[in-house]
Nucleic acid binder design. Structure first.
Length: 568
RNA sequence: UCGGGGAUCGUCCAAUGGCAGGACUGCGGCCUUUGGAGCCGUCAAUCUUGGUUCGAAUCCAAGUCCCCGAGCCA
């Protein structure tokens, strides 16, 4: 996965600084804390689709394992059957693989360990460190205390070990209704760390589980299960996000009381990105309320959305490396993500010409019945990609933006009397502008210089602009979906985050024109560049009779900036 | 208010007592058959106040601000 960066590192032997996690790991390796073993994992709950924030975590865990010749597990944290679905399991597996994080044969489920977890619970109960509590959810809440006041001990806290064991057994056997009892750890109701105030370990839930079916009617809480899962898999370094820092003492308490193997948890800051939201809750809301067309809508920051939009795994890997990892809350500029895709696509994407907003050009001195095939380079960044033939004829489409009747000073494109180059074709000069009765330009007439075939002038004559074009007679058509940022504000959030949505995040161009060579190799997922416009890919909505394109990202556009400044 | 974390260019990450550096963005230039790419340059930061030290982003003290925590969610 790190081929590019590895090459870069070899060329520039100055050592890269270690992030704080790798510093800890190297220290652990030095002291032999885990016998120099490194084993990480990515533990998603299958209750939603993965997003770019998860990609950071996946790549950090996987990259760490690779860096230290260790292992990496994928493990589903599936302890709540009410929220979890098989559909999410499948999407997560697909996304993790696509990102290049290879877990080999180590795909696990927390639910695989339910039996072992139960035995651990019995062990703790037998030790007098856990008890069955008959308090209702409301009562537990009421006796937990507050941030500044201690909680009160449950009246059931002093039950005998024998009674606890019996009750726990019967909870498991299904004798009690949902919510009637819980198994709680007996720790300290006065702890300033609320997680230590006799946390619930098991709740009764008569609900089928996507893996274990009806076998269980008590399910472990995350705080009870998670540390055990890492322990059972002999994970050395449990990387997780900041909000679990307060839970670490609890995980350690469980494992110490159980005398079980104990991983080192290290917390890092989750990723935030400008102009989007990252919480599963908000993403789900966008999907459910149809503000977007599903989890894989190309405007979503989900892995599946980005894949559909045309992002490459390499682009995301490079992005993840660039943003680094630290403990402070941060919001990465989405421009860095866009830079990462452009950088990769620039190297690998074949070029084509396509016109989004057509303006018809007629070349008056080019014979009506003549057509020719012109050779075009597929990728100037990679000559091994070869060349292709592009048909040329008398009537063409160019981008409407590439013509101005009354151009400002630094407009280099077509204008009355102005000569420009048609990419890989000829120099043309604008001779006439045709308008309809409303004054709209309907057609532009030009003459061409036959001596400039291929786009070079024999007399060294220079031209300022180069335009892309498509022969009208040969043009194929497609629907193009243009995406813009999902939100209008840099840091969307709060109760009314839906009001911050960008109403024009999706623009559909019903009919764009493109050269035949593209239509011939257009299969869903195919990524390419429309010269001067941006990177695009073929959307899976494509049918044999209709091509659908997604714009991944525009090219950097210097003219757009100049034009914007002139407007002000 | 209690506990846990955090504060370095606009943004993200480095510097681990010794010249505050890199990337993105912005700006300027060179180059260009993509106003793309590439190349070069440039603006731009140590939360505050004290202290220790020859020397502090780094160590100490006090303060300020931000984030997380009171699910039978994860």
């Amino acid at each position: 996965m790190h081929s590019e960066s590895d090459a870069a590192t070899e060329n520039h032997p100055e050592k890269q600084p270690l992030n704080f996690i790798h510093q800890i790991i190297e220290e652990d390796n030095r002291t032999g804390k885990f016998g120099s073993r490194v084993h990480t994992r990515f533990p998603p709950e299958p209750n939603g689709y993965l997003h770019i924030g998860h990609a950071k975590a996946i790549l950090l865990n996987y990259g760490t394992a690779v860096k230290y010749n260790g292992k990496f597990n994928l493990r589903f944290d599936d302890t709540n059957p009410i929220k979890e679905e098989e559909e999410y399991v499948q999407s997560i597996i697909e996304d993790v693989k696509w990102l290049g994080a290879d877990y080999e044969d180590r795909l696990f489920y927390g639910s695989d360990y339910f039996e072992q977890m139960y035995e651990y619970a019995v062990q703790l109960t037998r030790k007098g460190k856990a008890y069955v509590c008959d308090l209702s959810a409301e009562e537990i809440k009421a006796t937990r205390g507050t941030l500044t006041e201690p909680g009160q001990e449950s009246p059931y806290r002093k039950r005998s070990i024998a009674e606890n064991l019996d009750l726990l057994e019967r909870m498991k056997a299904g004798e009690f209704p949902d919510g009637s009892r819980t198994l709680r750890a007996k720790i300290d109701m006065a702890s300033p760390n609320l997680n230590m105030r006799d946390p619930v370990m098991y709740r009764i839930l008569h609900a089928p589980h996507h893996r274990t079916g009806n076998k269980w009617c008590i399910y472990p809480m995350y705080d009870w299960a998670h540390g055990l899962e890492d322990s059972i898999e002999r994970i050395t370094h449990s990387l997780c996000t900041l909000e679990f820092e307060d839970h670490r003492p609890l995980y350690d308490w469980f494992l110490i009381e159980l005398d079980a193997y104990r991983p080192q948890q290290i917390e890092f800051a989750r990723l935030n990105l400008t102009y989007t939201v990252m919480s599963k809750r908000r993403l789900l809301e966008l999907v459910k309320k149809r503000y977007v067309n599903g989890w894989d809508d190309p405007r979503m920051p989900t892995i599946s959305g980005m894949r559909r939009r045309g992002y490459t795994p390499e682009a995301i890997q490079n992005f993840a490396e660039r943003i680094g990892v630290a403990k402070r809350d941060s919001t990465v500029d989405v421009a860095l993500l866009e830079f990462s895709v452009r950088e990769h696509l620039n190297k690998i994407a074949p070029r084509f010409m396509g016109v989004l907003n057509p303006l018809k050009i007629v070349i008056d001195n080019y014979p009506e019945d003549r057509e020719e095939l012109l050779e075009a380079i597929n990728n100037p960044e990679d000559l091994s990609a070869g060349t292709r033939q592009v048909p040329f004829s008398r009537e063409l489409y160019i981008e409407a933006d590439d013509f101005m009747e009354d151009p400002p000073k630094n407009f280099f494109r077509l204008a009355p009397g102005r000569e420009v180059r048609l990419r890989y074709a000829y120099f043309i000069t604008c001779t006439n502008v045709i308008k309809d009765s409303d004054g709209n330009i309907t057609e532009v007439h030009c003459s061409y210089d036959p001596a400039t075939s291929g786009g070079d002038s024999p007399n060294g004559r220079k031209v300022k602009g180069t335009l892309h074009w498509v022969s009208a007679r040969h043009a194929r058509t497609a629907e193009v979906r243009l995406y813009d940022r999902l939100f209008n504000v840099e840091n969307p959030g709060g109760e009314h985050f839906l009001e911050q949505l960008n109403p024009t995040s999706l623009t559909i161009v019903d009919k764009c024109y493109l050269e035949p060579a593209l239509a011939e190799q257009a299969v869903p997922g195919f990524r390419f560049q429309f010269e001067r416009l941006g990177y695009f890919c073929i959307d899976p909505d494509t049918t044999p009779t209709k091509l659908v394109l997604n714009r991944t990202v525009t090219l950097r556009d210097t003219w757009a900036k100049i034009a914007q400044k002139q407007q002000k």
